[in-house]
Each structure stands twice: as C-alpha cells, then as structure tokens.
Amino acid sequence: MSLDSTQLQELELLIADRIYIQVENWHLYLGDAGLSKPLAIECQAHLDNGANIAARKACEGVQVLLGGGNTKLPLSRLISSGQFFELEEILQNYCP
C-alpha cells in the first residue's frame, strides 16, 4: 500500500511523538533520534500485510547505528514491547 505524501508525513509525526528507544530508564523519542522518517517509510512498505506484520518487519528493517557506526542493531532490539504495541495501534489507521 502506498501512502500519499501527506499521510506519510502524518505517520512520521505520530511515530516521532509516540515511539521511543529505551535505554535503561531513559527514553529517546524517534523524532529526536532521526529515526521516525525511516521507520514511517519502512512501515509503509508493509502496510498491506496488516499492522502487526508491518510493525514487526519495519522495526527489523530499520538499522540503528550505535557508537558512531561501530555497531548496528535493528530498531526492534531497542524498543519495549509496549512501544511495539503502540506502533501497531498507530498503523491500524493506515492498513487496508
């Protein structure tokens, strides 16, 4: 499914404000980390599969660079299960 530019931007803003990486007790929102746009684009590519699969595949597909690029981890390894369910809820509105 393809979103128009307005819908994609709306999705990006929702992700930026509601989804965060959790490190210990510290929350870094994806908008601040510069990851909301790559995640929105990756989610868009999988929306036809439903919110659960789109969220799972997108979080696996977005690679997060750590330590100045010395290490790469999929976003799925850095968000809590609660945040994953939050992303699914966001994507429900965009799935066919």
Rank of each mutant, 00 (worst) to 15 (best):
F84Q: 07
Q83I: 02
S5A: 12
L47N: 05
E24R: 13
E89Q: 15
A55V: 01
L47E: 08
G34S: 06
A45R: 15
L14G: 03
L65D: 06
E10P: 00
C59E: 05
L28Y: 10
Q92S: 12
D32K: 13
L3G: 10
P96A: 10
E24Q: 15
D48M: 06
G67F: 10
L14T: 01
D32H: 11
N70H: 12
V62I: 08
A33Y: 10
E24F: 13
S5F: 09
S81A: 15
I19M: 10
Q63R: 14
F84A: 08
L13P: 00
I19F: 03
H27S: 09
E88Y: 00
L73H: 06
Q63S: 15
K37L: 07
N52Q: 11
H27R: 15
G69C: 10
Y94T: 05
I19E: 08
N49P: 00
G61Y: 02
L39S: 06
S81I: 12
F84T: 01
L3N: 07
R56G: 00
H27K: 15
L28W: 13
N49A: 09
C43I: 02
L75P: 02
A45H: 04
E10I: 02
I53S: 14
S36Q: 04
I21K: 03
A16M: 03
S36W: 01
G50S: 06
C43D: 10
Q22V: 14
L39Y: 03
G67C: 08
G69Y: 08
L30Q: 08
F84E: 08
N52S: 12
L73I: 04
V62T: 05
A40K: 13
V64A: 03
E12P: 04
Q83F: 02
P38G: 06
A45Q: 13
S5P: 03
T6E: 14
D17C: 00
L11G: 15
D17G: 09
G67T: 10
L28P: 00
G68F: 12
N93C: 07
I90G: 07
H46M: 05
G61M: 13
A55F: 03
E60M: 14
L8S: 11
I41V: 14
L14A: 09
E10S: 12
V64N: 01
E88N: 07
I90Y: 11
S81C: 03
R18H: 10
L8T: 07
I21Q: 01
A40D: 06
V23I: 14
W26Y: 14
Y29D: 00
L78N: 01
S2Q: 14
H27A: 08
S5W: 07
G31C: 05
I15Y: 08
T71C: 01
T71Q: 06
S80W: 01
E12L: 00
L73S: 03
L11E: 10
Q44D: 05
A54P: 11
Y20G: 06
S5V: 00
R18Y: 01
L73V: 12
L35E: 07
L75K: 05
